[in-house]
């Protein structure tokens, strides 16, 4: 009964993956069969400033978004658990951002963050603040993208945290109450350690998406201005489908895949360490 699924996975996933790895080891020119070139594409990575720029942007976007989403998500998740409010319309509002198509998120960002006609800069002006070039300032475009992703996915983290918290045994917290543990101390010594596995789960899910983040960046900036938001996945896409530098683009994609799988393995270890 597994056979049809395995056959499909073999043709559509395993073979293409192997083929991509092979392409990454080849010189590929249009009209000629690919020729193995002894890892030259990977050697080229090491000397390519765009690659290092992409790696730096990928990790920077990953780190700030992940930290922001885990911190705010934990706060919001515990708030939801406390107020028991994640029902009905509140749940609908929380769920909507991460169920919206990324294209809609991108269009929303373009219209709201438009430097002259967007409502974001108008609001800043009302507060007496100078306008910002949200998506076209090379120094801050990654922060803007991180903020968009944080807007979209923090509710998801919060709902996971809420679920994790509500499934914890209530007696532990009652015992802590008797012992006089309150506020920050209770959070730091009790709630946070107990939420460890839940937080690792949320972190894995966000890591996979953040490291290979593509849609919203490509829709809002196409990697620009210049290369200021050209993360590895955007770089690989542009090299592959705009410049048809196929062997080299494949090498970037394989490297990025290794980064994603590596991060998942690290979190799998971490989960074992924090499981009580």
């Amino acid at each position: 009964m597994v056979a049809p699924a395995l056959l499909f996975a073999g043709v559509m996933i395993v073979f293409p993956f192997g083929y991509a790895v092979w392409l990454s080891l080849c010189d590929v020119a249009l009209g000629q069969p690919p020729r193995l070139n002894g890892g030259a594409n990977y050697a080229r990575l090491a000397g390519d400033a765009d690659f290092w720029n992409g790696l730096r942007l990928t990790l920077w976007l990953y780190a700030i978004s992940l930290v922001a989403q885990l911190v705010i998500g934990t706060w919001l998740g515990l708030l939801l658990a406390r107020t028991r409010r994640a029902r009905g319309i509140v749940r609908t509002i929380l769920v909507s951002p991460f169920m919206l198509p990324p294209v809609v998120i991108g269009m929303m960002a373009i219209v709201i963050l438009d430097p002259s006609f967007g409502i974001a800069n108008w609001l800043l002006a009302q507060m007496g603040l100078p306008p910002r070039l949200w998506l076209s300032d090379p120094d801050t475009v990654i922060l803007t993208v991180a903020a968009i992703d944080t807007w979209q996915w923090t509710p998801f983290v919060a709902l996971i945290v809420m679920g994790g918290y509500l499934s914890l045994p209530g007696e532990v917290f009652e015992a802590a109450e008797v012992d006089g543990a309150r506020g920050w101390q209770r959070f730091r010594r009790l709630t946070l350690p107990l939420l460890g596995p839940t937080l690792v789960t949320a972190a894995v899910l966000r890591s996979v998406d953040l490291l290979r983040f593509f849609d919203v960046i490509y829709i809002t900036t196409q990697g620009g201005p210049g290369t200021a938001s050209t993360t590895l996945n955007i770089l690989a896409y542009r090299r592959g489908f705009e410049f048809f530098d196929i062997g080299y683009a494949s090498a970037i994609m394989v490297t990025l895949s290794a980064l994603v799988f590596g991060s998942v393995l690290v979190f799998a270890r971490l989960r074992r360490a924090v499981t009580w």
């Binding site: 597994v2 699924a5 395995l6 996975a9 559509m12 996933i13 073979f15 293409p16 993956f17 083929y19 991509a20 392409l23 996979v208 490291l211 290979r212 593509f214 996945n233 690989a236 896409y237 592959g240 489908f241 196929i246 683009a249 494949s250 994609m253 394989v254 990025l256 895949s257 994603v260 799988f261 998942v264």
Partner: peptide, 22 residues
């Protein structure tokens, strides 16, 4: 097999595109 399908969920989509195109 379930773990193997996770692989598809984690890999960047760009990776599959060139082979699929071919």
């Amino acid at each position: 097999p379930a773990t193997a399908t996770l692989f598809a969920r984690m890999a960047p989509g760009t990776l599959f595109l060139l082979p699929w195109l071919v």
